[in-house]
C-alpha cells in the first residue's frame, strides 16, 4: 500500500510540474544558455594541450555537460521542500494526514517526483548537448546510466530539502537556507572545472563534495567509457546518501507531524 501512496503523492507533483509550461521552458532554456554561451566561450580558452590534458577531452562543452546536468538537478531538487511548506500553508497537508495514507509516503513521494523531474531535465540537457555536437562514448546505455545517477543525486537534494522543510515552516527561510548551501556546493566541485586545475585546498574540498561524486561517474561514462574501478566509490557515496536522506526526510516529517 505504501508504494501506491508514494506513487500518487509523486503523481500529483509531476502533474503540476509538467503543467507549468513557463517553468518547463525555463528548464530547457537555462542549460541551453549555459552550454551554448559558456561552453562555446570557454572553448577557445581550453583549446591548448595543457588544458586538454586537465580536462581529459578536447571539448570543454562535453566536459561541462555532466556538470550542467547536475547543476540543474541541484537547483531543482533543493526546492522540493517548498511543496511541503506550501501544502502545509494551504491545509492540503492536513487533508493528507487525515486520510489513511502512510505518512512516510508523503516525503518519499515528493522525493520520487523530484527524481523523475531530475531525470527528465537531465535528458533534455543531454539532447541539447547532442544537438551542440557532444558525442557520448558509451551510447544509450551510458545515457541511461547518467540519468540514473542524476536521479539519485536529485533524491539526495530533495531529501535534504524536505528534511529541513519539516521543521522550517516559512518559505522564505527555507529558500534562503537552501540557497546558502547550493552555490558553495556547486563551486567547490568539479562540475565546471577539473579538480586537477584547482589549488590543493579546493581540490581537497572538491574530493569530498557530493556534487563531485555525482559528476565523476557521469563524466566517466559519457566521455571515456565504462570503468567501474574509478566510479564505484562515488556510486556508493551517492547511493548511500540517497538512502540516508530518504530516511532522514521520513523521520523528520514523522516527528514534525506527530502532535
Amino acid at each position: 500500500m505504501i508504494i501506491m501512496d508514494v506513487v500518487y503523492v509523486a503523481w500529483r507533483e509531476l502533474l503540476k510540474f509538467f503543467r507549468a509550461r513557463v517553468r518547463l521552458l525555463v528548464t530547457v532554456i537555462q542549460p541551453l544558455i549555459w552550454l551554448g554561451l559558456m561552453g562555446n566561450m570557454m572553448q577557445g580558452l581550453t583549446q591548448n594541450p595543457f588544458i586538454e590534458r586537465l580536462l581529459g577531452t578536447t571539448s570543454y562543452l562535453a566536459f561541462m555537460t555532466p556538470g550542467i546536468i547536475l547543476m540543474t538537478v541541484l537547483f531543482g531538487g533543493v526546492f522540493s521542500g517548498l511543496s511541503i511548506v506550501w501544502d502545509r500553508r494551504i491545509g492540503y497537508l492536513e487533508k493528507l494526514l487525515a486520510a489513511p495514507i502512510s505518512r512516510a509516503a508523503i516525503p518519499l513521494g515528493k522525493m520520487v517526483a523530484s527524481a523523475i523531474q531530475g531525470g527528465f531535465q537531465g535528458l533534455l540537457i543531454l539532447l541539447i548537448a547532442l544537438g551542440l555536437g557532444v558525442r557520448f562514448s558509451t551510447g544509450l546505455a551510458g545515457v541511461l546510466f547518467a540519468l540514473l545517477v542524476a536521479m539519485t543525486f536529485s533524491l539526495i537534494l530533495s531529501g535534504f530539502s524536505l528534511t529541513l522543510a519539516s521543521r522550517i515552516k516559512s518559505q522564505e527561510t527555507l529558500m534562503a537556507l537552501v540557497n546558502f548551501f547550493t552555490m558553495p556546493l556547486m563551486f567547490t566541485s568539479n562540475a565546471l572545472f577539473p579538480r586537477e586545475a584547482m589549488p590543493a585546498w579546493l581540490s581537497a574540498i572538491a574530493q569530498i563534495n557530493l556534487v563531485t561524486h555525482a559528476v565523476t561517474p557521469i563524466r566517466q561514462v559519457l566521455l571515456f567509457g565504462w570503468d567501474w574501478s574509478s566510479m564505484w566509490v562515488s556510486l556508493v557515496v551517492i547511493g548511500g546518501l540517497a538512502l540516508l536522506m530518504a530516511f532522514l526526510a521520513g523521520q523528520s516529517f514523522l516527528r514534525a507531524t506527530a502532535e
Binding site: M4, R12, I90, Y92, I101
Partner: peptide, 21 residues
C-alpha cells in the same frame, strides 16, 4: 479550503480517492 488549485476539480477528487485507497 485545502484544494490544490493547479489541479482540476476531477484531479483533486481523484487523488483524494486514491489517498483513501
Amino acid at each position: 479550503t485545502a484544494v490544490d488549485d493547479q489541479l482540476t476539480g476531477w484531479e483533486n477528487l481523484y487523488l483524494q480517492g486514491r489517498f483513501h485507497h
